[in-house]
């Protein structure tokens, strides 16, 4: 180490003599390089689960549309990810519908805006519709290739209206192996959703407190979704050896203390 420091020190004095002496006083190891997959491209499914109930109308669904369109375009430019990214979008209110009948390759995805409906917010319908697809005869068809654990983003602006039904659906979903292995994020949008109660319900979905984020009307949902999609997909696709059921690394969040200052937590300071 000392030799290395001397090398740069001598280099510095050669290069910067006119600027006086400073810097390069200590040698710190370079940051770690993220591990790469051994070879072959695996599929990373990214699922967006979007609340399209009446209260999302106007600016809120406008924010969601702008954010998703941009992240699809951004992920397309990141061609050195060692994965093939596919996207599926679910809209839910009284019912849950997959806007994409099957996950679509990010390069082929033609985004069309999501509409809202004068209807309730039934989390249970969304959870059921997700559970059905997290199987090999659904969106995780092994005939199409090998999969990374999916990335799931859930966006809603309020607590569920199906209080009695959603817990049953969530319990069933939690028993799904792909769901437990997946990386899950929940974003509450708008003032009305910034409650402990909504936070606790969404925490049941994500399993990790840090992965429940809050985007108020001005919080830049676009930045938040971009951050989650890019960071989480990088993390997901670098976990080569993680096995079914999830290793310890799956319990980590991409959000650290620095990010808490950038993006609000629904629970206040975490």
């Amino acid at each position: 180490m000392a030799d290395t420091a001397d090398f740069w020190k001598s280099m510095e004095s050669e290069l910067f003599s006119q600027f006086g002496e400073e810097s390069l006083s200590e040698v710190v190891p370079a940051s770690q390089i993220q591990p790469k997959t051994a070879g072959g491209r695996r599929i990373l499914n990214i699922f967006f689960i979007i609340d399209v109930s009446g209260s999302m109308r106007g600016m809120r669904i406008g924010q969601v549309n702008y954010a998703i369109e941009n992240i699809i375009k951004e992920l397309r430019t990141r061609d050195d990810l060692n994965s093939v990214i596919k996207v599926a979008i679910m809209e839910f209110c009284n019912e849950a519908t997959w806007k994409t009948p099957t996950p679509i390759l990010i390069d082929d995805y033609v985004f069309t805006p999501i509409d809202t409906y004068p209807a309730y917010t039934c989390y249970g319908k969304a959870f059921d519709a997700l559970e059905v697809k997290l199987h090999k005869n659904g969106f995780m068809d092994p005939a199409l290739g090998e999969y990374f654990a999916p990335l799931i983003m859930f966006v809603s602006d309020g607590e569920p209206t199906d209080f009695n039904e959603y817990p049953v659906a969530l319990e069933k979903l939690k028993k799904n192996k792909w769901f437990s292995k997946s990386s899950k994020y929940a974003i509450a949008v708008g003032e009305g959703a910034k409650t402990e109660k909504v936070g606790r319900i969404l925490e049941q979905f994500t399993g990790i407190r840090e992965n429940v984020r809050y985007a108020d009307e001005g919080a830049g949902l676009c930045n938040l979704i971009e951050y989650i999609a890019i960071r989480a997909s990088e993390v997901q696709t670098s976990l080569v050896s993680s096995s079914y059921g999830g290793g310890k690394e799956q319990a980590q969040s991409i959000f650290n203390e620095v990010d808490n200052s950038l993006f609000s937590s629904i629970f206040g300071n975490q």
Partner: peptide, 17 residues
Amino acid sequence: RFSMEGKEGSCPPKGKM
């Protein structure tokens, strides 16, 4: 932080590299 040919170095705020 920077490295070249296996040699690592660092440049603090207000430093030059």
